[in-house]
């Protein structure tokens, strides 16, 4: 047994990682089995990323991992070493003004209990980055990776439409 352990010496139970979250670099030593969702919530105290099923279905824990929407409950913190993550806390502007997506959710009453909301906003952010002008059907299809139990989705869909419109305008102004 001892020999085998030696051979597998590169296999560790704890690991030092350096992760950039919302632009800030964090260095931590973590157990390798620590889920990324738990790392964000309980080590970095970024509790806006919620946990609803730990099975990759509900979407509450969705964050941007190197710009792509992923389930934080299906990754280990150690896998985030050297990577860049954006969470809901990184969405608002420097002066803390709401991001146009967040603003649209407020105006259209796209949230009720608010538990699924951060994950949905991160997904929508990724969606609109890729499809700036989605149809309602596309919005509904893309939203299907996030469960909401309060809103019936209707106002979320309306919020996404509004956000898309504003982001397109913003984009045009920049150009």
């Amino acid at each position: 047994m001892r020999e085998r352990d030696d051979d597998l010496s590169q296999c560790v139970e704890e690991c030092e990682i350096a992760v950039t979250v919302n632009g800030n670099r964090h260095e931590h030593t973590v157990p390798v089995r620590l889920l990324l969702s738990d790392f964000l919530r309980h080590e970095l105290h970024l509790t806006g990323t919620h946990v609803g099923c730990e099975q990759g279905v509900c979407g509450c824990c969705t964050v941007l991992f190197n710009g792509e929407a992923v389930r934080a409950c299906l990754m280990f913190a150690v896998q985030a070493d050297g990577m860049a993550i954006t969470t809901i806390e990184g969405m608002a502007g420097v002066n803390s003004e709401l991001h146009p997506i967040q603003q649209a959710f407020r105006e259209k009453h796209g949230l009720q209990c608010g538990f699924c909301t951060p994950g949905i906003i991160m997904s929508v952010h990724a969606m609109l980055h890729e499809h700036p002008d989605p149809t309602e059907e596309e919005i509904r299809h893309e939203l299907s990776g996030n469960l909401c139990r309060c809103t019936g989705y209707q106002n979320i869909v309306e919020a996404v439409k509004l956000a898309a419109e504003r982001l397109r305008l913003q984009h045009m102004e920049v150009e």
């Binding site: 509790t47 969405m91 709401l98 407020r106 906003i121």
Partner: peptide
């Protein structure tokens, strides 16, 4: 009236039980 609870929840600054440390 737009909801007063929203700005906090939208920023991920809610305070659900599991957020208490």
């Amino acid at each position: 009236v737009q909801r007063l609870e929203d700005p906090r929840l939208l920023r991920g600054r809610g305070n659900y039980v599991d957020d208490i440390d």
